[in-house]
Design a protein around this nucleic acid. Structure first.
Lengths: 174, 174
DNA sequence: TACTTTGTTTAGTTGTTACTAAACGAACAG
DNA sequence: CTGTTCGTTTAGTAACAACTAAACAAAGTA
């Protein structure tokens, strides 16, 4: 039980906390934490051993992490095992996360707001006071989502620019 | 069952979806949706009627919404009831949400990453290859979190500037 | 063919969370 | 003080999500 192992363990615990803060299973954070601190790719069995989770849990969580681009699976010649390693470039991960977000329920819900607005504007009684109010409100919300989307796209573009650029650009905002 | 009511209902459903996408109870989204489409502040009982939830659920969800700054309670003279109205300025809401985020588990976990780094750098065997690797990795993560924080603060500052400024600033990023 | 070694899927368990129903408390009215 | 009208809190419930254990599938090896 070296001090180093202690530090690692503490780090993994912190990653678990961050993970469930984002609404993800804490196992996801633990797996990423272990991989992130490993110089070598790890096999599924090594992850079982180092996280204390079972094969099943590792299997599903690892898939989620790969879908987000936070880890990658690597194959070794003449070895049937899958190995996994953490993506060290977080901006690359951000891009794939935001890209995946395009096809999910959130954008679907956002689309339904736009649909609501269209229906309202097509309404015959569009001159009634309450109707005007509704249109104004829903349009404001739609604009807000559009702004969020713009911001999201801008952030997604930062991956190729590196950290310095981010900080430089953000200073402009101050 | 007018067409207008239909449209409203559809909107509220969409808000519920967005709500649970962000990891919040769907009741939160429903309540906000109803309030957002109401020109007048609504009482707790009116919310019970329009959302189908019970008083208890409304009571707790309304508190969460108020804490996030998404709605406000208003008092009427000579009326003991509490009335609630939606905050129409979303940038104002964003600021209070990000402000509240300062004191939660996320920053606590982020702090533990910084702590990990300090421990590693204080280690005696800091010249060993694996130790160097660990320090490098943890420092990269800490820097990434710092960039996120900077971005978050920048966004929080946008509330006083309005939508046009946001879009203007974001164009710089392109 | 049978036997291993891998990863995935399924069934069942546990723990968590949002909700309902009802008790409670506070504040006013008579 | 009694009764009423609010909002909150609590106890219990139902739904859900993450995990374990074990069956399964796939693909190589002897």
């Amino acid at each position: 039980m070296s001090e180093l192992e202690d530090i690692k363990q503490n780090f993994v615990t912190g990653m678990s906390g961050i993970s469930q803060f984002w609404g993800l299973p804490k196992g996801v954070g633990a797996i990423f934490g272990v991989l992130y601190l490993s110089p070598e790719p790890l096999s599924l069995d090594e992850l079982v051993q180092q996280t204390g989770l079972t094969k099943g849990a590792i299997s599903t969580n690892v898939r989620a992490l790969a879908r987000m681009g936070l880890i990658h699976s690597v194959q070794r010649l003449g070895d049937r095992k899958d190995y996994y390693q953490a993506e060290a470039d977080f901006y690359k991960s951000i891009r794939s996360i935001l890209k995946e977000r395009q096809n999910n329920e959130f954008n679907q819900a956002v689309a339904s707001v736009a649909e609501t607005l269209e229906k309202l504007e097509a309404g015959a009684e569009a001159s009634e006071p309450e109707h005007v109010f509704l249109i104004e409100r829903v349009r404001a919300l739609k604009d807000f989502f559009a702004a969020l989307d713009t911001l999201s796209n801008a952030v997604a573009r930062l991956d190729s620019l590196g950290l310095n650029t981010v900080q430089t650009v953000l200073k402009i905002l101050k």
